[in-house]
Design a protein around this nucleic acid. Structure first.
Lengths: 347, 347
DNA sequence: CTGTTAGCGCATTCAG
DNA sequence: CTGAATGCGCTAACAG
């Protein structure tokens, strides 16, 4: 009776062995059943299925991942959960990953490289099959961490000229440039770019630099404005108020995002200012409210869902290639997606 | 030379043993360092810290969780990622859990009990320390699964009279009732409740039943409307158009959420209808746009952040109690939070 | 305060 | 197609 003293270990939950015993097969066969049903004989499949049903067995992810050294999860770091910007991308990643059995681990960096580093560090402990990062600046430490862990990385919402990882994104500078040209062609000349309150939104900064480049090309003087208000809707109103008054008011505003632009339009409504006649307004994002505003908002629609979908697809392809020891050259590393200027009433 | 054949196992990453070796201590000491720094001598702490720094070691969550049979994660199932309704709650849960080292696993059920069941099943495999569910209906299977796994559950965005689990929420029927009384006191009598397009939003249905009860108490005939349009902003516009025309137009509308109400207000703006004079509009949610609309939206503010914070706190308390083998009676199981009617211009 | 021993539940490996 | 042995990396339990 050496086994009588029950050690206080184990979760007490049903294990693979319990199921195997009940089904009258070995644990290994049940394990195979989970990874590939077809690899076990039909009658065993049925007995195993019955045993699983009866016990309510759920595979312990930890044990499996530990044994195979591959976590069945994908980590994703986005700048901010709230705001509606990344929702569709998250949804797309979830949708695309789910059929392959990967769980999404989500973290938000709050636009901070330190928090991003913390999130990446936390994720690495989960031995994720891959990480999806959004196109922010990265701390050197984060880069080291990533290299050290050897986790495949896909960057999205980014398009760099010398990418370190697979990237899926669109060109923010081009958005800035195209928006500027769009307004120029419609006769606007005193075009001002409105920054978000926070200075560390890299995408916004890139759009601003595209704007500045375009203005120079066109022989115009670029001018930017950064509101004080931190709530985006208020910040947009502040920008509109400030930039349409004074001696040389702007005749067109490029807002770095739709929330800012919406703030401007709603401010105009409240103050009974005829926006379109006073000053053209352009946004970025094409949030769902954009076409409902009065006037409806002319804006740029980034491929939000598509970025998530492609990013997840590349992850799947990459993992499959690694698994099959196939070359990863066939995987498109530079995925440049297109955005679209949506012409409406505000510009 | 029995060890010479390198098995193709292991991740190749730095392990606890590597760190221990480098620091000249045992693996156990390093393990203790992670769970409680103070429990190892100061000089060892420093040597260990140096070794960790040098190797870029990150603890393997799987191995730890497997050994201790406790996953360092908390699963959360919400009805829908997009829409802005649950953002703050998610953020609150993340914020509250982070200091305790728990990772949030997020899944969306898309308002479907089957998808919820799938999510719960997936989560259970992660041996989560706890699950946070939102107050939807649950399939019997899900309930079984939960009972079987023995995972502590906290329900939020719900307040049932006979809760099975710890619950953190507010009373949806009361919201419906109070909104009705609010309008009644202001002289409105032909009050109609506008449902969301989807029939399975339990919270909305509960608010509707509160509305109906209140109308009966007040001796008025309740009337509800469910739009055809699936996009919420459009559905709101449709409801407003339909209900303010005809022989006995409504004089006040209670929308089951702010997105619907916003659709009505934006429709009014576009059609140049003076909303407040035509028909009062009330929403639910107090989304950030509510006070920026014209007219600004009278609505009900649920304790979005607070629900997440309290839910996560209860989880922490519960886990601590379980860990210390303390009684869990001291933990408040029925957390009824308050909402607030926010009076603005639209009603 | 520190080390030793054993095993968490599964998948890999190899042998039938 | 199936089974037995082995160990993934860590921590609980116990002994010093």
């Amino acid at each position: 009776m050496t086994q009588s003293a029950r050690k206080r270990r184990g979760s007490g939950r049903t294990t693979l062995h319990n199921v195997a015993e009940l089904a009258g097969v070995s644990a290994m066969t049940v394990s195979r059943y989970f990874s590939n049903k077809e690899s076990v004989r039909l009658d065993m499949q049925q007995r195993i299925a019955a045993a699983i049903e009866q016990t309510g067995y759920v595979r312990n992810v930890f044990a499996g991942s530990l044994a195979s050294a591959r976590g069945r999860c994908v980590g994703m770091v986005i700048p901010h959960i709230a705001g509606g910007v990344y929702e569709e991308t998250i949804q797309a990643v979830t949708d695309t990953l789910r059929p392959f059995g990967y769980q999404l681990l989500l973290a938000s960096s709050n636009y901070s490289t330190e928090e991003e580093e913390a999130a990446v560090r936390a994720f690495i402990g989960w031995a994720p099959a891959a990480l999806i990062l959004t196109g922010q600046k990265r701390s050197r430490k984060t880069t080291e961490l990533l290299a050290n862990a050897g986790v495949p990385v896909v960057e999205t919402w980014a398009h760099k000229t010398r990418p370190q990882h697979i990237q899926v994104g669109f060109s923010n500078p081009s958005v800035g440039k195209d928006s500027t040209h769009y307004l120029y062609e419609r006769g606007y000349r005193r075009i001002v770019f409105v920054h978000p309150p926070r200075t560390d939104d890299v995408g916004a900064n890139d759009r601003a630099s595209g704007y500045e480049a375009a203005m120079h090309e066109l022989g115009l003087a670029p001018a930017t404005f950064r509101p004080q208000a931190t709530v985006l809707l208020d910040a947009g109103a502040e920008a509109f108020r400030t930039l349409t008054s004074g001696r040389t008011p702007a005749d067109a505003l490029i807002f770095s995002n739709d929330n800012l632009a919406a703030g401007a339009l709603l401010h105009g409504l409240r103050e009974r200012i005829a926006i379109a006649q006073t000053c053209a307004v352009m946004g970025f994002g094409d949030l769902s409210i954009a076409d409902k505003l009065v006037p409806s908002l002319t804006t740029v629609r980034p491929p939000r869902y598509e970025m998530g979908r492609i990013a997840a697809l590349r992850v799947i392809e990459l993992l499959r290639a690694i698994e099959e020891d196939a070359p990863t050259d066939a995987i498109e590393r530079d995925n440049l997606l297109t955005y679209e200027i949506v012409e409406r009433e505000s510009a």
